[in-house]
Design a protein around this nucleic acid. Structure first.
Lengths: 238, 238
DNA sequence: CCAAAATTTGCGGGTTCCCGCAGGACAAGA
DNA sequence: TCTTGTCCTGCGGGAACCCGCAAATTTTGG
């Protein structure tokens, strides 16, 4: 049994190494990579079927690396080990996990015990192990009280990239008006109208404010933006 | 000699603890805090004059903590120890350093050697120790080829918060037109006009695109936005 | 001190955005 | 089938944005 560790912080990497060794004595070789790209290469070369990896790394982040790994071998078991439980990350992971794949999502702040349990659960028992906090985010993002539908999220990302309504309409093959409708739904779901000072109107540029709120609430984050930007650029714009 | 460590990651905290113990044998007590707020409290209580602290922590980040610490005792020596060298962080730190204070800024990825050197340099020799990469960012942000002036940066932040031109004019006590002028400068300095696909016009909403580019280039980041948002809210909007 | 350079401000217009209103398209259920 | 609900679409107008032009003001440098 071989395990691949993808993590850029050396301290965390060696901590993980120890945890794996302790939790999975049946594991005979532990491979390491220090960024997403190296992780992909290693995974391809070693055919490792068990990967534990960090999100937010430089040089290709965890989500992108996971996507290409899963594209090549969809039965790979991946345990995500992240600092944050931003909705953007949770959504990003959910978006790329293949049909029936087993994976886990635990926070770096969890106890060593829980990390070891997750390691065994995902790699030995083929369970999906998701931390409580992360689960909480998942729920919230689905509970449509304040949660955005996928369609709305897509629009939000396009807006955040700086595209005009017209450009978005073209990309998404919708009429101009439909795009604007979805935008208004966004403006309601994020509390864009709430004004800091007095109740004066016209304080906010709604389109920009929506993105600001999404960033503050971690519905969006820089990493998601980077991914979207790259996608935009090599899809040639439309 | 007492040293206060403010760092939320337990691994990094203990690593720092070790490094301090090794680099500064004359240090007799090492205090620890696990977020910015606790750090402020500890600093106030212990009157520590030497602080090493992380940026990006939950529950009040390093910049805010440093600001209140320096406000109370401007001669405190602070060594910032951060994962990233985002322009937003570098600028944020530079913005709050008091006249003549000594501080340092090293990345978590630097060698143990350099960390120890920085510890001695800042705390014993009262030098300002800034990592090469960080210095590089500093230069770039000043070299006005692509670097934003302080005025432009301020506007950028206000725009990113979602304020309208009019609102910004009011806050900054400028005319509407001046705000728009500064915006146009922004649009030029960030390459807002560059289009992905063909040379079609009207592809970008410039105001939004400027913020997107700033985020992608790390001129802005979520942490800076949070700070600005809080400031906006308790300045009552104007 | 004056001249050059940079900023600020007003005006005017073309464009985009924001959104109420209202008419279609399509699916679910009585 | 008819209703109800949801979504897409077009129209129209008021507000905000983007920006060229030019005068007024401030700053800089000699």
């Amino acid at each position: 049994m071989r395990i691949l560790i993808v993590e850029d912080d050396p301290l965390h990497r060696s901590y993980l190494h120890e945890a794996v060794r302790a939790a999975l004595p049946e594991c005979d070789t532990i491979l390491e990579a220090e960024n997403g790209h190296a992780g992909e290469v290693q995974a391809r070369k070693s055919r490792a079927e068990h990967v534990v990896m960090d999100l937010q790394m430089s040089e290709r982040n965890g989500i992108e690396a996971a996507r290409t790994i899963w594209r090549e071998r969809p039965d790979t078991k991946i345990l995500f080990w992240s600092n944050y439980s931003d909705e953007a990350y949770v959504r990003g992971v959910a978006r790329i996990v293949p049909e029936g794949a087993t994976y886990g999502y635990v926070l770096k702040s969890t106890s060593e015990e829980r990390l070891k349990l997750a390691l065994r659960g995902v790699f030995m028992e083929s369970q999906c192990v998701i931390d409580r906090e992360v689960r909480g985010i998942q729920q919230k993002s689905l509970g449509n009280a304040h949660g955005l539908s996928d369609a709305e999220y897509e629009i939000l990302v396009d807006v955040a990239l700086g595209l005009t309504d017209k450009a978005i309409a073209q990309r998404k093959k919708l009429s101009l008006r439909s795009v604007q409708n979805r935008l208004q739904q966004l403006y309601e779901k994020l509390d864009v109208y709430e004004v800091p000072g007095g109740g004066s109107e016209g304080w906010y540029n709604l389109r920009m404010r929506a993105v600001a709120v999404a960033l503050l609430r971690k519905v969006l984050n820089a990493s998601a933006l980077e991914r979207a930007e790259r996608e935009l650029r090599n899809s040639g714009g439309n």
